[in-house]
Design a protein around this nucleic acid. Structure first.
Lengths: 226, 226
DNA sequence: TTGACATATAAACAAATGTTCGTGTATACT
DNA sequence: AGTATACACGAACATTTGTTTATATGTCAA
């Protein structure tokens, strides 16, 4: 167990400053910047105490390189877990388009990677089904055509990019002949494919394999009222 | 709208390298390090293309300082959204119990605040409807009794604790006479209350106000398959 | 006091690093 | 052809920056 109080006041200040600096600027401070902020006249003193912080396990230094610092332990009262600033946040999923009954799904590759930076949404990890966020995307549902699948207008569906599916999985499929996009449970049968609505009160849809392009597997749904 | 393909191959490589470098080392690369990795002979060329990336909005540079780089936009295929410092972390909401047709809802006060710390789930901010996570709780849906409300077995509903409701809001209500819990849209009418299922194919339920205890307002629903 | 040790200071040094400038090479357009 | 533009190259330059050395100060214990 690391004891923050074993550090001198000066070292604690240095740690705090380094953390705040990285939060603000996105990269670590230089030795001289630390010195100025912490009222340390000599760079060698900063260097000395930085090595102390290394010994204490709070930071790691990359020798010879400028700003070669990184915080690797939590700073009590200041920061929680260490993290790399300036990098993308976890669990942000690309919101690549919308899904409606009468039009095909717009996937990133279809639209040539025209993804705006704002078009990302936070998704809790339990909705990613263990998949990497890079292979996952999200669509906004438009229209009430998917009530049979328990999905309504405004819902956001989280999908994993894939062109095949196992029985029972819920898939996003484009039916060229019918000119229709649908979200249903996938079952391969003798001669055709059965697309089963989640709501048992509705009838399944039987389509020929040639008339069923699977665009992705539905991992989860988020619905927000109002 | 940012277009990743508008960047030259070289610029895309630079972005990717910068991202990976920061992931590995915890601080940004120097101009010369970028040049070596991306087979660019001259530092001025790196500098030139870095400024292009600034113009394109992918990075921000801090002039004159070494390694003064930071990535501020998503890199398609590599990284997702940029982290915005100061944004609230994914909110943790108390998962206080389950909701099923034939039994009342167990609210925290009913069970004496015996909430285990494990019984919290991450909920993205957009599903909290602007409410504080303290007044919000979550329930696991058991059974298929709420298909009429487009909610199925296994869904997690996010609610705000409140005993009244405005027309149109979706509420969790306990009906003492019927010994039933239900999730429906709330409409106060002349003599009674109309509880309207989200799926219009189902019939509304009319109850006397004395037979309708509102437990909370439904803010959102999370559904995870498999 | 003496000595050992941790910490601090200032100065000098060497290397790393961002910047700038002159020039060259395509490509597209007039 | 001529011109403009985008991109690239190499070299020189000025800072920034990490490192090292010699010296000083403080504390604590023998």
């Amino acid at each position: 167990m690391k004891d923050f109080n074993l550090l001198s006041r000066r070292q604690q200040n240095m740690l705090r400053f380094m953390h705040n600096y990285m939060l603000e600027r996105g990269f670590p401070p230089s030795i001289r910047e630390i010195g100025e902020e912490c009222d340390i006249g000599s760079t060698s003193v900063v260097n000395y105490n930085l090595n102390k912080l290394v010994d204490a396990g709070y930071i790691v230094r990359s020798g010879k390189v400028s700003r070669g610092l990184r915080i690797v332990a939590a700073i009590p009262g200041v920061a929680q877990a260490p993290r790399v600033i300036g990098l993308p946040a976890p669990n942000q999923v690309a919101l690549v388009g919308r899904i409606a009954a009468g039009e095909p799904i717009s996937l990133p590759e279809d639209i040539g990677h025209h993804i705006d930076e704002d078009d990302y949404i936070a998704v809790p990890p339990q909705l990613l089904g263990g998949y990497d966020e890079g292979e996952v995307f999200a669509l906004t549902v438009r229209g009430d055509s998917m009530v049979d699948s328990m999905i309504q207008d405004g819902d956001i569906v989280i999908l994993r990019r894939q062109n095949t599916a196992d029985n029972g999985e819920m898939v996003a499929a484009w039916l060229p002949d019918d000119n229709e996009t649908t979200l249903k449970h996938f079952y391969r049968e003798a001669d055709n494919i059965r697309l089963q609505p989640a709501n048992m009160a509705y009838q399944p849809l039987y389509v020929h394999p040639a008339n069923c392009e699977i665009k992705g597997k539905v991992l989860s749904v988020m619905r927000s009222f109002r």
